[in-house]
């Protein structure tokens, strides 16, 4: 290992090379399957099934991706991407709005059984979607929300995690700020909108990234409530492309779909990276 360690993080000479080597190796290990998927999405079906497996991209990129986007296996991928986008954004935005408001209520208002409500919210952390899936289905079916965006979004919108996070953040905001706003004549919602919300900006961004990916990756719930293929989301649609029984799978198109399914979360993470890291690391006070 490194001999010339001058600080906790800073390394020189061998240490520097070694750490980089390990990092590059790690990246390769993680990246290789993605690379294979990409390669598979650019070749023909016979090329995939014939050993050895190709490791360099073929010449069918445009054909395969066009096929995936506009016709797909069951539904065009473009439709599924759109569905997923609506669901993920809906869930992320809805969760943020609801948890901001409930955290605001819990921290800044004294109402009867305030703590009870907080703990009730907190308790739901222990109940993931899978546990309450049957009653939730019953409710959604009762509201005739099967095969609809509202059905996809609403059951997943309440978030104890986000509420808890915002509560913790609001608790670190000095009381004097709320009092100063009161003296300035700002009502509660004005204070929320003008002061609390801008101060939570980085937290909101960080949460948006996490929740967007959470929403994007939902599998079980969309699988249950969308029977109409045109309402399929990409993650479940991908699974349904897999052949069952003796069907022949169109692997290049499936792989192209996989690659396409990865792009939006990656774009969200990269575009919000700066805010995301700031939201996790420091808070502006």
């Amino acid at each position: 290992m490194a001999r010339q360690v001058t600080g906790m993080v800073e390394r020189h000479g061998m240490g520097l090379w070694l750490t980089h080597l390990v990092m590059i190796a790690g990246v390769l290990v993680i990246f290789f399957p993605i690379w294979l998927a990409f390669v598979a999405s650019t070749v023909t079906q016979p090329e995939i099934v014939r050993p050895p497996m190709p490791v360099w991209p073929g010449d069918r990129f445009v054909e395969n991706y066009t096929a995936a986007l506009f016709s797909g296996v069951n539904v065009p991928v473009l439709v599924m991407l759109g569905n997923s986008l609506i669901m993920a954004v809906g869930i992320a935005v809805g969760k943020i709005i609801i948890s901001l408001l409930s955290a605001f209520a819990i921290v800044y208002f004294r109402f009867p059984a305030r703590n009870l409500f907080f703990w009730l919210i907190f308790l739901t952390l222990m109940l993931p979607v899978e546990v309450r899936i049957v009653p939730t289905y019953e409710v959604i079916a009762g509201f005739r929300m099967l095969n609809s965006y509202s059905g996809l979004i609403f059951p997943l919108i309440a978030s104890a995690t986000a509420t808890f996070l915002f509560r913790q953040f609001f608790l670190t905001v000095p009381d004097e700020l709320a009092e100063a706003a009161r003296v300035d004549g700002a009502g509660p919602m004005r204070f929320f909108w003008d002061i609390l919300l801008p101060m939570s900006r980085t937290n909101i961004a960080a949460l948006f990234v996490i929740l967007f990916i959470y929403g994007w990756n939902q599998y079980l719930w969309p699988l249950l409530i969308t029977t109409d293929p045109s309402m399929n989301t990409i993650v479940m649609g991908l699974k349904q492309m897999f052949p069952s029984g003796d069907d022949v799978a169109d692997w290049p198109v499936i792989m192209a779909t996989s690659i396409l399914a990865m792009i939006p979360p990656v774009v969200v993470v990269i575009s919000m990276q700066k805010l995301f890291i700031r939201g996790l690391v420091d808070s502006e006070k």
């Binding site: 000095p174 004097e176 700020l177 009092e179 100063a180 009161r182 002061i195």
Partner: peptide, 21 residues
């Protein structure tokens, strides 16, 4: 009366300036 209707202004110990403004 609410603070804003009392025609007072207050200066706080930790200043309580709005950090994002």
């Amino acid at each position: 009366r609410e603070p804003m209707d009392r025609d007072i202004a207050m200066v706080f110990q930790n200043y309580a300036l709005y950090p994002h403004m």
